[in-house]
């Protein structure tokens, strides 16, 4: 009984309960026939949300006003440039990955430079930088659709023992991030800054260094997600990142991370990412129209957030 209560007091549990419930309802509709297929699809698509969500989680944990709105543009630019460099050749995969990560590094540095040097609030800084990044992507893409190298396409679309490879990659990243958040000095510092930036500074936390590293980390994870997504979907598209703007924030909030900063939660990101994908596929399965789908998605997200926040107050 006590163990059960402990599990229920975890902030991430609601995201998983919601995801499980939606999964069950969807599978019921098809009489259980789609269990494996739906599970694999959910894991695959959730993986991309998880990777960007983990970066956004750190940024949001920095405290009120901190959010990275340049994630979609960063994904697009990283994917576009990487595919261009690789020119569908397997031998260039490593170079392509470096280019993608380099884009993330550059975007992160630029974002924090705007925030720090020009004293622009992070929301405005990352939004305006995302216009520049997106324009660069448009300019370099020029309507070309380059196919990813075959090895990358195989890697991202195939499974190992029934588990999609991208889910394994995302799981590996999650473990690293979990250790970073819960065990490392950097994780402590991020959490301290999010609770009270001034107090953290006076306690000796290198506030600028930590915030800078966080914006870079977020952008690098976004660029990696873009690279994998383009490989998975057979090429980069200019709108490929669009849906991840809201998704990256929603998975953080639903996952149990404090919107006001100072407290982050890694497992919840997985629950929330699975949940968001499954809600859409459930509504699709039941044949809901696009309008109804959007409406219900919104209502369901609000419901989960309310349920989760009420638990935390109690």
């Amino acid at each position: 009984m006590n163990a059960l209560r402990m599990v229920f007091s975890k902030p991430w549990i609601w995201a998983f309960i919601a995801a499980g419930g939606v999964f069950f309802v969807t599978v019921m509709f098809t009489g259980g026939a789609s269990t494996i297929g739906l599970g694999q699809a959910a894991l695959t698509f959730a993986s991309f949300s998880v990777i960007v969500g983990l970066g956004q989680m750190f940024v949001i944990t920095l405290g009120p006003g901190n959010v990275d709105l340049s994630i979609p543009a960063t994904m697009t630019l990283a994917a576009t440039l990487a595919l261009k460099v690789m020119e569908s050749q397997n031998g260039m995969i490593f170079v392509g990955l470096l280019v993608a990560l380099g884009v993330g590094l550059g975007v992160g540095i630029a974002n924090y430079a705007l925030i720090k040097a020009l004293r622009i609030p992070p929301i405005i800084a990352t939004l305006s930088s995302s216009f520049i990044i997106q324009s660069t992507a448009i300019w370099s893409n020029r309507g070309l659709r380059i196919r990813p190298p075959q090895w990358m396409a195989d890697l991202t679309t195939q499974s190992l023992f029934g588990v999609p490879n991208v889910a394994l990659i995302a799981l590996g990243i999650t473990l690293v991030i979990f250790v970073l958040l819960e065990k490392s000095l950097y994780g402590r510092w991020v959490s301290a800054i999010g609770q009270n930036m001034r107090a953290a500074r006076m306690a000796g936390v290198p506030v600028d260094g930590v915030r800078f590293a966080t914006y870079v980390l977020c952008a690098v994870l976004a660029s990696l997600a873009g690279f994998l997504l383009a490989s998975f979907s057979g090429g980069a598209a200019l709108n490929m990142g669009t849906e991840y703007l809201l998704t990256s924030i929603a998975v953080v909030v639903i996952g149990g991370t404090a919107v006001a900063g100072g407290f982050a939660n890694v497992p919840g990101i997985w629950g929330a990412s699975l949940f968001l994908f499954l809600v859409v596929s459930m509504l699709n399965t039941y044949g809901a129209s696009a309008g109804v789908r959007m409406l219900l998605t919104g209502v369901i997200i609000i419901g989960v957030i309310i349920a989760a926040s009420r638990r935390r107050v109690a």
Binding site: S191, A192, Q195, A200, M202, G204, A258
Partner: peptide, 19 residues
Amino acid sequence: VDGNLPLWSILRNMTISLL
């Protein structure tokens, strides 16, 4: 304003500077 990290335990508040 300058001291407490309100979400944290006594322990974590005490050790932040010497981490």
